[in-house]
Design a protein around this nucleic acid. Structure first.
Lengths: 223, 223
DNA sequence: CGTGTCCTTGAAGCGCATCAATGTTGGTGG
DNA sequence: CCACCAACATTGATGCGCTTCAAGGACACG
């Protein structure tokens, strides 16, 4: 991938990098910082379709299908590696394994969205919230972004706003807040000051109606 | 693709071809018939993550990520073209454009699931249902599966059960039935005897809170 | 003619949205 | 250095859209 790397940039918090409906010449890999991808449904309604962590590829869609299906917004300051869309075609020819990996990533994203769908569609607010936190912290543990917490727990930076989670789960801000308070009261997950602390991953999994093995992400190729 | 084609099979209605959590050696292209992909959340709760029409690729995930993220179930009898998972790797090397197309397909699926997510998360039952019917009929029109109906309408076979739609939109069967009745009463969409009839696509789009251009699928590569 | 599958309709109740108000924190300019 | 404001978090009250429970109808099949 280094061959087609074009640049490395630092972006301010709360910046829209990619806009839904527009073509993008670039795609990025997140090196540091946090962001999110979202779709706009109507004025004052959006759906967050994913949280972006270091190591994630951003804008693959735009590179393959004329225009972006979602926008990308930074939450914190981010450091990004920049690639050029036009270079992708050549990459497939020269390094088929990389092309295979890209399909893998897209399929993996698809799988994640399917799980989100199942979560929003079939679970209660409480379960869905628990599932999201569990899924997030397990994924970030695989990335080395978490710190151990007690026997079976973990903590990690999670610098989003409650509104972001609400828009991700299709809940109102108010109900999101109350559900978070419940999770905190039951010692399942405490999310304060941008830090997510889960004292017992197994217990959180039970509240989510799933087990850790099911919620664990698969090992992924690096791009 | 013909090079790696292994077989052509006919499958009975209501048959599970791929099972969530298991690896699959095969992937398929639907030549005729209808089916659906679904995830099992718990006993007696599932999430339908997509309806499968002729021309669709089935099981790409299983070919790339060790095991399937969802099950595949036929609704009608289906005719399928069978490919072997192991042949995929070679395909990427020999025909990079095909590999590119596969990523395109996966990214396209991801995009669709994002839209489903937005629909379930942000829209009312009525809007979500209208959106699903519109999206479905527009996609099938591009495949040549629809017949024109009046000035701005279209009709197509849609041989699913109400429970399938309910599980797709995260609604109860009862409410799905009542919402369908409303759509029928308002002359927006009539779905009876396995046929979906939409007299005015634009009007349906208005009920869905979107316009036809936004809901239209992008042209796709054939595999 | 009984049995299973799917569709339909009514009634009751709950989970969540919406409305409204207050608290907290950090930034900004007088 | 404090008054002010904007952004985000929190909490209570009210009501609706949906789920769940229940029952019955239509049709196909052995």
């Amino acid at each position: 991938m280094r061959r087609i790397k074009r640049d490395e940039i630092v972006v301010a918090p709360n910046t829209t990098l990619l806009t839904e409906g527009y073509a993008s010449n670039n795609l990025y890999t997140a090196l540091a910082g946090f962001g999110l991808r979202h779709k706009t449904v109507s004025t004052n309604r959006r759906q967050v379709v994913g949280f972006t962590f270091p190591g994630d590829l951003i804008g693959l869609q735009g590179g393959h299908m004329g225009r972006m299906g979602h926008s990308f917004l930074t939450t914190t300051q981010m450091t990004l590696c920049v690639f050029n869309r036009a270079d992708l075609v050549g990459l497939y020819a020269e390094q088929p394994e990389r092309g295979f990996d890209l399909t893998w990533l897209a399929a993996s994203e698809e799988n994640f969205l399917g799980e989100m769908l199942a979560s929003i569609g079939q679970r209660s607010a409480m379960q869905a919230m628990a599932w999201l936190m569990l899924r997030t912290i397990l994924r970030c543990r695989a990335l080395g972004l978490t710190l151990p917490l007690g026997q079976d727990g973990a903590s990690m930076p999670f610098p989003y706003r409650q509104q972001d989670i609400a828009d991700s789960l299709g809940l109102s801000l108010v109900h999101t807040n109350k559900t978070l308070a419940k999770l905190r009261a039951r010692d399942l997950a405490a999310w304060t000051e941008g830090q997510l602390r889960v004292p017992d991953l197994v217990a959180l999994g039970e509240a989510a109606g799933t087990d850790i093995a099911t919620a664990s992400p698969m090992p992924r190729p690096l791009v």
